[in-house]
Every structure is written in C-alpha cells, then in structure tokens.
Design a protein around this nucleic acid. Structure first.
Lengths: 127, 127
DNA sequence: CGGCATCCTCACGGATACTG
DNA sequence: CAGTATCCGTGAGGATGCCG
C-alpha cells in the first residue's frame, strides 16, 4: 500500500529509503547461520559442491544449494560448471565474498575468544 | 546414541569436541538477523525495552524479549530492572557484547560498501 | 555429481490477552 | 511498561526421487 506521505517524498529521500531497504535485505540474506558457515568453509580456495557438503557440518543438500544460489545471486560466490560427465561444479569467493569473509573470520575469533566468558555467564544465568 | 569409537576417545579429545559444539551453538545463537540488529541498536549506551522495540525496525515484542533473554543468558547484555511503577528495564552491552558489536559494525560497513556491487550482480543474475 | 521438484512436518514467529 | 502464556498460521527446511 502506498500512503499519501510516501507520494510527497522527494526523489532523494526515495533513493535513500530504497538503499536502506536493500541494505536490510542483504543483511537478512547474509546474517544467517548457513550462509556464514558456507562462506567460512569456502575459505580462500575453490571447492566442489560435495566438498562443501562434507565440510559444512550438518548442512542438507537443499540448504546448501539454496544458500549457494543466494550467494551467487548477490555476487559473493562465483559458480563454475565443468561440462564433463559426471558434472563438476566449483564455487569460489568473489572479491566481495572475500571481503565479507574477513568479517566472518572476526566473528569466529570472537566466538573462541569469549567461549569461557559465555560458559560462565550461562552457569550464572542458570541460577 | 554413544558409539564404541566415542568411548575410546581420550579426555582431551572429548574436551575439544565439547568446545567445538559449544562454539557452534553460540555461532547459531548469534548468527541470526534479530540478534545482530539488536546488538547494533544497543550501540554504546544503555536502552530501555521500548526504545529497542522502536529502534529495531520490524521486530515484534516476542522476538525482542526472546533474543534479549538469549543474549543475557550468553552474557552479552546486562539486564537492569528498576523496581519502579511503571517498571523500567534497561539493557546494556557487556564487555563481550561490545567486542561482538565491533564485528557486527564490520558487517554493516561491508554491506554499505558493496551495495553497488551487489545490485549489479543481481541484475546480471536476473538474465 | 549436482540441481530441482515434491511432499510433509514442526517450530518459528505474529497476534492477542492477562499479570505485576 | 515489561514479561509471560496461549493460540495458530505460515514457511523453513528435511527426506525422497527423478533428471541432465
């Protein structure tokens, strides 16, 4: 639904709001467990679909395909199909993907650095 | 189910696996849209429950409570109840929470820096 | 091997209402 | 104002099967 207020907005405002909603959309895409684990697993070299399924512990065939599509659509991974038989599909992080990976690495570091704190906090919370 | 292999594992190995599974659990807790948005919204000063609900666009009462509990349990936010009427509850990032926020900031920066790339990638993917 | 479609389940999450 | 409980629909996501 389009409100009167929205119709009165200036073009620049509309642009800003569009960029914001796009940013939120990307954030939602990327801020999810599987996407981040896949990006982490891709690391700095290219992987096959089946390698990823083995390395990303607990991911289902479906979730892997789905998230890889999403990452490809957003230009974070590059998908290379070798027309052999049997098929061979390789995934590689793009420049944008590698940049994202840096921040994911940060998240992993954080997790391990604060593991102890968190365990303590949980024990205290239990009481 | 406990396998024979698991029974043969040395204690150190067991510890490592426990730490890993805990790390994965924390990762799953934290790598979700609402948790990250809430941490970002908390910023560097303390906020009331209702302030958070206003600032985290689109979050429901329920999701906010639920995620705040989770963050509190993991020692990422501190919850301070003022026994006044009406009640006043304030949330603040702990040291661990502030450290996490740094990496979330990185994620936000990344989102904005690559917004253009991503838009382009999507257009190309559409074809 | 990798992708896609289908079915089916269950838990995530919204809406609502009641308490302190 | 903040928290908890309940109800309930929807969709995320697992399992399976077939295709190129």
């Amino acid at each position: 639904m389009v409100t009167k207020q929205q119709l009165k907005d200036l073009p620049e405002d509309a642009d800003l709001r569009r960029a914001d909603s796009l940013a939120r959309e990307i954030f939602s895409d990327v801020a999810n467990k599987w996407a981040l684990l896949i990006i982490e697993a891709l690391g700095d070299r290219t992987r096959r679909f089946s390698e990823l399924r083995d390395e990303v512990e607990g991911v289902s065939h479906k979730m892997l395909t789905q998230n890889l599509r999403m990452l490809e659509r957003n230009g974070l991974v590059d998908r290379k199909v070798h027309p052999t038989v049997p098929p061979r599909v390789e995934y590689t992080l793009t420049e944008a993907g590698r940049a994202l990976r840096k921040t994911v690495d940060g998240l992993c570091d954080w997790t391990h650095r604060y593991l102890g704190h968190i365990e303590d906090a949980r024990r205290r919370f239990g009481a």
